[in-house]
Design a binder for these strands. Structure first.
Lengths: 341, 341
DNA sequence: AGCCGAGCTTGGAACGTTTCACAACGCACC
DNA sequence: GGTGCGTTGTGAAACGTTCCAAGCTCGGCT
């Protein structure tokens, strides 16, 4: 009653197990007649290869995985789409594992994937703890860190987040803002601290007063709304006139809540996001954002991973760093977006 | 040089292979001293269980998969988050497979997952072809269809899309619109045709002129923008005064392009979306949309799947249908959203 | 007729686990 | 001093493949 195996197929077709295997893997070795017979037996029994057995017997898993920071952030699904494309071209499947910004969950996925002997892992880590990845790599599972730089003994694909933070803050300074807030967290996430660092660096350079940091527990819309509430609650005299958010999810939440509570954007509060996700341009007030080459990031990461998986011996780890780009829209520009007035 | 196996661990610790297995699976059967010895051997060698072998030898995969229509649509990642929560509580991992609105790709994933003997599959199918799912189920892999109704021999979790379409169209009719466009496609996707059917039904009931159907090739923002272009290109006399989009991705694209091309929303063009994704409320003109209980959908689906996977014998298939709800926002309401004037 | 090689098929080893019947040991008890 | 029991550890079978050496059957060639 359990799933039919090759043995059953062989019996049913009156051939040896090896022949069934040959029909599946080297059909050219099998005589026409026999092949047909085996194939109908397979169809009749509803035989399905057991991938575990297959893999055990020396095969490879032909599978990659991308352990994502949070699948609900469109930025990462765009990156994933890029990676998936490359995987597909190489004949590999790619699983997405949602870390949900949860360190323990990510760790569990890593364990599982290693035990499953996937050919390689792409990961955007929640925390800075590199030892787990080091162990993985040491034991033979190639790892590429995505959207975060890595040390010399690992491939990584990232965008210069410090520069991105600098761009964002500089833009706000240029527009005349002096009291600027940074919205983002938790600090354990590398991108958050890098973007913050970049922004601080710009302010220091300009001799402006330091950032007001509104720390969040996650990088999602809900947290953005909470930050909006906190900002709107401040007396206008002390309220920052601009906010730089660690990503667009936060920025969109912040924007939404700020508007709801009566702040005008950008007049009362200018907002800069990060990632330039597709929805940023379509926001209530189209969002100024720091853009990253999402798909390219994914593609490159997958290519590096494949290269390492295919030729582990001579592999030289690369840390690719792309440049972010500021996309200015109405959320920071004083011009009225349209002539409705 | 290849990954160490239990045999290596056993040799290193001076015990039998069976003992190593016991340390891992039934530690209480092993004496303290021996257990310690084995554990240090494991640590020293960097031994990692081979999940394939494990699974082969009668174990189960403790893994679910959700084959998503398109991971770049936030609706589905929200559903996935709900499902994942349930899976996690049950001690299972869940892989996300991005079908990318591509029938062939979905099929490939299904094959792979079946060969991998996952415990069950959640799927939002691209096309209406049920035979593949039927085959899966027949051979013993439980399947639950998500966001689409199914026949009596399969579990499904869906929202009444016909009703949703009706709600949307009725709302537009109530607001006085008579020339209404439907934006969506391809028709192979069940949700699209159901929502269209519902809308048509409302128009017929009201004796209004039939829908102008703008068919799209995908359900994404880019296609929405293209539809916007087509609409804006029509002479005002023949242009629909309202559009109902098969999902929010389309609606957001349409909105964006319509505004860019000088149409005022909702005065020149009212827009209703579908799914009420988080970004709908934050759009340039907050989007009226048909809301579905996303997380609940995912949770329920996963629960049904688990139930079937755990007790296949007595299982009775259920087709759960939830009710959608119209959320009215500025994209269809004539009131000016704020007092800016 | 005998031999050869081509074409096809076979059977069994190996992959790394888990499980299970059983062996070995020490110990208490009669 | 044997018996019986509980505690630990052992070794081999089994899971479903793939791969390979070896076998079989033919027809053609010398």
């Amino acid at each position: 009653m359990s799933a039919p195996s090759m043995k059953d197929v062989a019996a049913h077709a009156g051939v040896a197990v090896g022949t069934v295997s040959n029909v599946l893997n080297h059909p050219e070795l099998v005589a026409e007649r026999t092949r047909k017979r085996v194939q109908t037996a397979i169809a009749q029994l509803g035989f399905v290869r057991n991938e575990s057995a297959r893999q055990l017997r020396g095969g490879t898993s032909r599978t990659l995985a991308y352990v994502v920071l949070d699948t609900r952030n469109p930025f990462f699904t765009d990156v994933a789409a890029g990676a998936q494309q490359v995987a597909e071209e190489a004949g590999l499947a790619m699983y997405l594992c949602d870390g949900g910004e949860n360190s323990a969950r990510q760790a569990r996925y890593l364990d599982l994937l290693e035990q499953q002997r996937v050919e390689g892992i792409l990961i955007t880590p929640v925390d800075a703890d590199d030892s787990r990845l080091a162990a993985l790599a040491r034991r033979g599972t190639p790892v590429v860190v995505v959207d975060r730089g890595a040390g010399p003994d690992r491939c990584s694909v990232s965008v210069d987040d410090v520069l991105g933070g600098d761009l964002a803050a500089s833009h706000l300074l240029d527009a005349g803002h002096r009291r600027i807030a940074f919205v983002g967290g938790p600090r354990s996430i590398g991108q958050v601290t890098d973007r913050l660092t970049g922004a601080e660096q710009a302010l220091t350079r300009a001799g402006a007063e330091p950032l007001t940091v509104l720390e969040t527990t996650r990088l999602d819309v809900a947290e953005g709304r909470r930050a909006g509430e906190r900002l709107a609650g401040l007396p206008a005299s002390r309220r920052p006139t601009a906010a730089f958010c660690a990503n667009d999810m936060l920025a969109l939440g912040l924007l939404q809540q700020a508007v709801r509570l009566g702040l005008r954007v950008p007049q009362d509060l200018a907002i800069v996001g990060y990632d330039d996700i597709e929805f940023a341009a379509a926001a209530a007030v189209p969002l100024t954002s720091v853009s990253q080459p999402r798909q390219l990031l994914g593609r490159t990461a997958a290519e590096l991973l494949l290269a390492e998986a295919r030729h582990p011996e001579g592999h030289v780890h690369q840390q690719r760093v792309f440049e972010p780009e500021l996309v200015v829209r109405e959320s920071t520009s004083m011009r009225r977006p349209d002539g409705v007035a």
